[in-house]
C-alpha cells in the first residue's frame, strides 16, 4: 500500500468522525451567528453618529465585512487538535504511532483535514454567499480574483495555525494538567490573531510587536484579503510571508517535538 492510500484512509476516518457529530456542527454554525450579530450592532452604534469617520483605520463597511469574515475564518482555522495531541501524550497513545510506519504529525494533519473538510467547505460557501449579497447590495461587481486569493490565504492560514497548535501541544510533554492550559492559549491565540476584533484596536505598539509573530497572518490577514482592504501587492507579499512562517513554524515545532519526545521516551512512556 502506498503512503498516499494510507493518508487517504486517515483523511476519510477524520471525515466520518466529523459526520458522527453533525448535530454539533449545525449548532456550532448557529452559535457562530450570535457574536457576529452583537458586533454588528456595536459597530453600527459606533459609526451611527459620524458615518464617514474611520475608526482604527476601518470604514463602517470595512468593519462590518471584517467582523463577518473574521468570525467565519476563525471557525475555519481554529481546531482542538492540541487537546487531542496532549491526550495522546498523556495516555501514552503516542506509542502506537511510534511503533507504526507512519509519521505522527502527518497522521494528525490528514485526520484534521478530514474532520474539517465538510465544515470548512460550508464556511467557504457561506463567505462566497456573503460576498455575492454584498455586491448585489452595493451594486458593485464582485471580484473573483479576490475570492481566489482569499482561498489561497485561508488554506495557508489553516496550515499555519495547525503548526502553531502543533508547537503549543508540545508543552504537554512538560506540564501535567493541560486541558485548562490549552483553553487559555486557544483563546489568547484567537484574540491576537484578530478573531474577535481587528488587531488594529490594540494600538501601534502591540501591532508592531505582532508583526514579528505569525498570528497576524492567520485570521487577520485572511479576513482583510476578502474584505478588500488590502491591495493586490500586499496580498501577494502576505501570502509569501505565510509561506515563510509555515516553514519556520514547521522547523520550530519539529525541534520542540524532538526534544519533548526524548523526554517522553526517557521517562519510559
Amino acid at each position: 500500500m502506498s503512503s498516499y492510500e494510507t493518508y487517504n484512509r486517515i483523511f476519510k476516518l477524520g471525515m466520518q468522525s466529523a459526520l458522527e457529530y453533525r448535530m454539533d456542527l449545525i449548532f456550532s454554525l448557529l452559535s457562530a451567528f450570535f457574536p457576529i450579530m452583537i458586533q454588528y450592532f456595536i459597530w453600527s452604534a459606533v459609526y451611527a453618529d459620524n458615518p464617514d469617520q474611520a475608526y482604527f483605520g476601518y470604514s463602517y463597511h470595512e468593519m462590518i465585512m471584517y467582523t463577518i469574515f473574521a468570525a467565519f475564518t476563525t471557525r475555519i482555522v481554529m481546531t482542538h487538535v492540541e487537546h487531542e495531541m496532549a491526550l495522546d501524550i498523556k495516555d501514552g497513545h503516542l506509542n502506537r504511532y511510534l511503533v507504526r510506519p507512519i509519521n505522527y504529525f502527518s497522521y494528525r494533519f490528514f485526520n484534521l483535514i478530514g474532520q474539517k473538510m465538510f465544515f470548512n467547505c460550508l464556511m467557504v460557501c457561506a463567505i462566497f454567499a456573503v460576498l455575492i449579497c454584498y455586491s448585489i447590495y452595493n451594486g458593485t461587481p464582485m471580484k473573483l480574483e479576490r475570492f481566489l486569493l482569499f482561498l489561497a490565504a485561508v488554506i495557508l492560514a489553516f496550515i499555519l495555525n495547525m503548526l502553531i497548535s502543533y508547537a503549543i501541544a508540545a508543552i504537554a510533554f512538560w506540564l501535567s494538567e493541560i486541558s485548562y492550559f490549552f483553553e487559555m492559549t486557544g483563546l489568547f491565540v484567537i484574540i491576537i490573531s484578530g478573531g474577535m476584533f481587528p488587531v488594529d484596536i490594540f494600538g501601534p505598539w502591540v501591532n508592531a510587536m505582532l508583526d514579528y509573530s505569525p498570528f497576524k497572518l492567520t485570521i487577520y490577514f485572511a479576513a482583510n484579503v476578502v474584505s478588500g482592504r488590502l491591495a493586490r501587492e500586499e496580498i501577494i507579499a502576505g501570502i509569501g510571508m505565510q509561506g515563510l512562517w509555515i516553514i519556520s513554524m514547521y522547523i520550530l515545532s519539529r525541534i520542540l517535538w524532538r526534544i519533548g519526545m526524548k523526554r517522553y521516551l526517557g521517562l519510559g512512556g
Partner: peptide, 10 residues
C-alpha cells in the same frame, strides 16, 4: 450540548 452552546451565545 448544542442547544446549550446557543444559550451561552445569547
Amino acid at each position: 450540548g448544542g442547544l446549550g452552546m446557543i444559550f451561552y451565545s445569547i
